[in-house]
Design a protein around this nucleic acid. Structure first.
Length: 262
DNA sequence: ATGGCTGGTAGAACCAGA
């Protein structure tokens, strides 16, 4: 049975409810994983999701910042949360799908401005977060999908300029190496690059600061959908919805969808 | 020309994002 799973850093689910509805109406994924919902659980905007048939929702929100959610047309079990930063922030929620597949939705910390854990503790927390994910990933024994905003663009063709971004948090060698250890720890398949291989440029985030994001095209691929090897063999399609960057009141990230025949 | 913008929250010459 085919299942489609989307991931989107929405930068406030309440402020962008209209474009979430547009996305669900036009693309109808079975499951949508949201990051940066920026809402406490009691204030989550349930009615629109209910109206569109996304009856199953798992929330891990907090005041002001961060926050993740999984909304689904398929039943979800095993509401699980990891605190991979060990500081109480709402950055993960996991579920099991009816076919047994595990789905992990993660929002890796951005890491601040300076790529030095001594001067900038946020950068150290980001690296520690990815290291804790790696310990979890090593022990994992079930087919799993891990999706979300990883806040790391690993490949040269994942950024508009490899040279210009080498010292910019999100593309520094120390982060890329940490992410590559995570990937190796479970032989994760990077589905974006499985379907759109290097050296083709592929971005999922463009800054709000450019006056014309498409013309300047200074993007980065910060958002990822990874599958464990057995789940990756079931992947049949992948969509990167660039146009959503131009929708009304856009997020600075765009949604991606993977289809699996499980 | 990578910080020029953005949302949430307070009521800031704020914080965080990346």
């Amino acid at each position: 049975m085919p299942v489609s799973i989307a991931s989107w850093n929405i930068n406030s689910v309440r402020f962008r409810l209209d474009i979430v509805e547009r996305f669900l109406t036009e693309h109808a994924p079975d499951i949508l994983c949201l990051q940066e919902t920026k809402v406490i659980n009691p204030d989550f905007p349930h009615p629109m999701f209910e109206r569109l048939g996304y009856y199953h929702r798992l929330l891990n929100g907090q005041r002001m910042h961060h926050g993740v959610a999984i909304v689904s047309r398929l039943p979800l079990t095993e509401d699980r949360r990891h605190d991979w930063q060990d500081n109480g922030e709402a950055r993960h929620i996991g579920a099991r799908l009816p076919n047994g597949l595990l789905l992990e939705n993660v929002y890796v910390p951005a890491g601040g401005d300076i790529p030095d854990p001594v001067i900038n503790p946020k950068f150290g927390q980001k690296l520690a977060f990815v290291e804790r994910m790696t310990r979890w990933s090593e022990a994992l024994r079930e087919p799993t999908l891990i999706v979300g905003d990883f806040n790391i663009a690993p490949l040269e063709c994942d950024v508009w300029s490899h040279k210009a971004l080498l010292d910019v948090v999100s593309h520094t060698p120390i982060e890329v190496e940490a992410l590559s250890r995570l990937q190796a720890s479970h032989a994760w398949v990077d589905l974006g690059r499985h379907f759109i291989p290097p050296p083709q440029p592929l971005y999922t985030w463009w800054s709000y600061r450019a006056q014309d994001w498409r013309a300047s095209n200074r993007g980065r691929r910060l958002d990822h959908l990874w599958a464990s090897p057995e789940a990756a063999r079931a992947a049949t399609g992948f969509t990167v919805l660039e146009d959503a960057r131009s929708w009304g009141k856009p997020s600075d990230h765009i949604p991606q969808i993977v289809t699996l025949d499980l």
